[in-house]
Amino acid sequence: HEITLHINGRRVKLRFRDEKAAEILKEAAKKGLDEEELKKLAEELWR
């Protein structure tokens, strides 16, 4: 699955395995994680 989040006016595509991962990524984006941090988090969730 993929999700596209808008971060600092940019579109960031993240891959994720399940809905739980999608929710975690959305929450992290709301908390203000930047693009690099979100990509790292997405990679961690993928494993």
Rank of each mutant, 00 (worst) to 15 (best):
H1D: 09
H1A: 11
H1Q: 12
H1L: 11
H1P: 05
E2V: 14
E2G: 03
E2T: 14
I3T: 02
I3F: 07
I3Q: 02
I3L: 15
I3P: 01
I3Y: 03
T4H: 10
T4M: 08
T4C: 10
T4Q: 06
T4I: 15
T4G: 03
L5E: 00
L5I: 13
L5H: 01
L5M: 07
H6P: 04
H6R: 10
H6M: 15
H6C: 15
H6F: 11
H6Y: 14
H6V: 15
H6T: 15
I7S: 04
I7P: 03
I7F: 05
I7G: 01
I7M: 06
I7N: 02
I7E: 01
N8S: 06
N8L: 05
N8H: 06
N8E: 07
G9P: 00
G9W: 00
G9A: 03
G9R: 02
R10F: 06
R10S: 07
R10M: 09
R10I: 09
R10Q: 09
R10C: 06
R11I: 15
R11L: 15
R11Q: 15
R11H: 15
R11N: 14
V12W: 01
V12P: 00
V12A: 01
K13R: 14
K13M: 07
K13D: 04
K13Y: 06
K13F: 05
K13T: 15
L14R: 00
L14I: 06
L14G: 00
L14M: 05
L14D: 00
R15Y: 10
R15K: 11
R15C: 06
R15N: 04
F16C: 09
F16Y: 15
F16H: 07
F16E: 00
R17F: 08
R17I: 09
R17H: 07
D18W: 05
D18L: 03
D18M: 03
D18H: 06
D18V: 04
E19F: 12
E19K: 09
E19G: 09
E19W: 14
E19A: 14
E19V: 09
K20M: 12
K20F: 11
K20R: 14
K20A: 13
K20D: 08
K20E: 09
A21T: 07
A22H: 07
A22T: 04
A22I: 10
E23M: 13
E23A: 12
E23L: 12
I24Y: 08
I24L: 12
I24V: 11
L25Y: 04
L25I: 11
L25G: 02
L25P: 00
L25V: 06
L25R: 00
L25S: 00
L25H: 00
K26G: 05
K26Q: 10
K26F: 11
E27K: 09
E27M: 12
E27P: 00
A28Y: 09
A28P: 00
A29H: 12
A29K: 03
A29Y: 13
A29R: 04
A29P: 01
A29W: 15
K30P: 01
K30H: 12
K30Y: 10
K30M: 13
K31N: 14
K31G: 11
K31M: 15
K31I: 09
G32A: 05
G32C: 05
G32R: 04
G32Y: 05
G32Q: 05
G32E: 04
G32V: 04
L33K: 08
L33A: 14
L33E: 06
L33M: 15
D34P: 13
D34I: 09
D34G: 13
E35A: 10
E35R: 06
E35D: 06
E35L: 12
E35V: 14
E35N: 05
E36Q: 12
E36Y: 13
E36R: 12
E36I: 11
E36F: 13
E37Q: 14
E37N: 12
E37I: 07
E37Y: 10
E37L: 10
E37H: 13
E37A: 15
L38Y: 02
L38H: 00
L38V: 09
L38I: 13
L38Q: 01
K39R: 13
K39H: 11
K39S: 08
K39Q: 11
K39N: 08
K39E: 07
K40G: 08
K40I: 12
K40Y: 10
K40N: 11
K40F: 12
K40E: 12
L41A: 02
L41G: 00
L41R: 02
L41M: 10
A42F: 04
A42Q: 03
A42W: 04
A42R: 01
A42G: 05
A42E: 06
E43Q: 08
E43D: 12
E43S: 07
E44K: 13
E44F: 14
E44S: 09
E44Q: 13
E44R: 10
L45P: 01
L45H: 02
L45Y: 03
L45D: 01
L45Q: 03
W46Y: 06
W46P: 00
W46N: 03
R47F: 14
R47K: 13
R47Y: 14
R47A: 14
R47H: 14
R47V: 15
R47D: 10
